[in-house]
Structures are given as C-alpha cells and as structure tokens.
Amino acid sequence: MINYFKEILVGFWSLLAGMAVTIRYFTKPIVTVQYPRQKLTMSPRYRGHTEFVIDEETRTHRCIACEMCNRICPSQLISLQGVKVDAKKKLPSRYIIAYQYCSLCGLCVEVCPTKALKWSDEYLLCGFTREDSEIDLLRRLQDQQYAKGWPLTPIPRPKPEEPAPAKGEEVKE
C-alpha cells in the first residue's frame, strides 16, 4: 500500500522534473535559424556541384580535357568533349554535368591532374525539369568571368567534319 502511493508520488515528481527542463529551455534564446530572413554561410568544404577553378594568373580554367573525371565518375554523368587547339594543347569544348545523378563523392575533384575542379557553394539547386539540373561548366565559367570583368574564355568549336553538338544553347544551371 505504501509502495503504491510512493510510486504515484515518484511518478508525479518525474513528470514535474521533465516539465522543469522544458520550462527552463523556454526562457533560453531560439536555436533555430529563421530561414528566409536569416541565412547561413556554407562551410568551406561544402559540396555543391563541381565548377572550374579560375586561375588567378591566366584568368581562365585549367582543364586539359584528359577525361580522367569522366572515367572515374561512378554515375558516368560528365559529358566532356575535347578539341585539339594545337599540336600539344587540348581544351574542352563541352563540359556538362547531369547534376541529378551526382552522389557527391568527390572522386572527380581528387583525380584531376591539374586541379581544375572545385566544389561550388551553390545550394539552391531545385528546378522544375530534368534539364534544369544540367550544368554547363564552360558557360558558368564565362558568367563568373563576366561578373569579375575579366575576358571571357571562348568555347572552342569541334572540327567542322564532326557533327557539331549543341553547346551554347544548353540551359545553364
């Protein structure tokens, strides 16, 4: 009989102790971010989609179209085409990532021999169609150069005998 009442009392006290925790936190400042009015900055290693590194000296990208990233990508989502501009040099004429298939593993960034790729801090990446998430890195680079007032890197055309792929008309971002 005593145990019965004791259990009730202890139980009731435990509920009050729980309420006390809630009430204590009620007076503490809000921890959530009030999103549309308040935005967080992305951490330096945040993985958005990949983008070209802009070399400070040459003011352009460092891609040599070696297709290493293309080969290591688990989802085979990079469509990359290179054009020989002279005897030694090769440049990309098309670099499009189908971002909707990307699993953000970072293998392409690590495998790149010239360190031409980096992660962007883009996080608003939703769209209405599948094509919205296809990102043309060469066009994106031109946009970034334009924003800085630097000369734009021309997108080399493949040789005329090849069937010319549509490159400039792609929906960007």
């Binding site: 921890v31 951490s43 290693r45 945040y46 993985r47 699993s103 970072g106």
Partner: peptide
C-alpha cells in the same frame, strides 16, 4: 545539428558521407 555542422566542415556533406 552541432555534430552535422562539425562533420560538414571536415567531410563536406551532412548525411551521406563519402
């Protein structure tokens, strides 16, 4: 959330780490 922020600094992702 604190753990995810800390791991985000190191690994670059918040949930499906690689």
């Amino acid at each position: 959330e604190h753990i995810l922020d800390l791991l985000d600094r190191v690994t670059g992702s918040r949930l499906t780490y690689c």
